[in-house]
Design a protein around this nucleic acid. Structure first.
Lengths: 157, 157
DNA sequence: CCTGCACCTTCCCATCATAGGAAGGTCAAC
DNA sequence: GTTGACCTTCCTATGATGGGAAGGTGCAGG
């Protein structure tokens, strides 16, 4: 199976499959005489695992850990559960922050007449910072990937 | 006022102030003979506006539009309101996606004994994709910036 | 006057996951 | 044998931010 077929079968773009190989998330694919990559069902399985983990918002780094646990016959489900729980917390916190922003902005928008005049409480709040959430720091950059829209023209699914 | 003082006063890092200048979000700062940038209260005001807009999750591109409306004496608050409402929708959708992922993962974790054995429904679902949300596409990349943690060592606030 | 330190300048690189495209080779069907 | 769909590698971009190097400036203390 070449990379295009593997892409359609796994739902991971060919571009990403090559990338995952380059960062060692998947082992180097077998090559045909032509140089074309050749995939088997085990490879598809692994790619599917990765995609599902991405669908749950895991970063590639965490997926690396999960893949390790997956292939470890002596793994402890406690370890997996701990990672999952930690990730749930992070997802919830990110959602909370977004909702905070949405709520703040919604109430500003609600307070705006929108009647065509220049007066605007939204602009006024941006000037002064009143009713704008502090958007507390912490959660350093790179701590969590954005929702990962992915899957655009990959089709299949 | 030099860039460090402006940073502390506005809550925007010096690095970002220079960046905003380089992309034209703020006009080129005055320079002293030494080459140092020199900021006045109008500049601080603009930087504060930008920071508040970032706190509400606006992208720099949208902030550019908001700044234009801000300085337009004949602006229509309807226009501002429309931008705000659209942004609220986007924030809500992103929050919804994150919550979907969190809910899915939480129920998987709840189904995991965590008793130290290898059996693990979380791993099993990653393998098969069962109970993993499709994470619907759309909302192309770059459509919205991550929560923008910002403000780490900028102090002030 | 010199030293030291805190600050400034520009420029380049890294993050994270993903996409786009160019230049060139391969395969299969017609 | 040509055409068109596919593959290869390599480079670049995204968005907002941070890190750091190499070198200049400003001010205070000795």
């Amino acid at each position: 199976m070449n990379i295009g077929e593997a892409s359609r079968a796994s739902g991971v773009s060919a571009k990403m499959i090559r990338h995952y190989e380059s960062i060692g998330l998947v082992p180097p694919a077998d090559r045909r005489d032509s140089g074309y990559r050749d995939y088997g069902t085990a490879d598809l399985h692994r790619l599917g695992f990765i995609r599902h983990a991405r669908d749950l918002g895991f970063s590639l780094d965490r997926i690396r850990v999960l893949l390790g646990l997956w292939s470890d016959p002596a793994r402890s489900n406690a370890e997996v559960k701990a990672i999952a729980r930690a990730h749930v917390k992070e997802l919830e916190q990110r959602a909370r922050q977004l909702n905070e922003m949405a709520n703040a902005l919604r109430s500003l928008a609600d307070a705006c007449d929108g009647d065509g005049r220049p007066d605007c409480p939204i602009i006024a709040s941006l000037e002064t910072g009143a009713n704008v959430p502090p958007c507390h720091p912490g959660a350093s950059p790179g701590a969590m990937p954005p929702p990962a829209p992915r899957r655009k023209a990959v089709a299949g699914r």
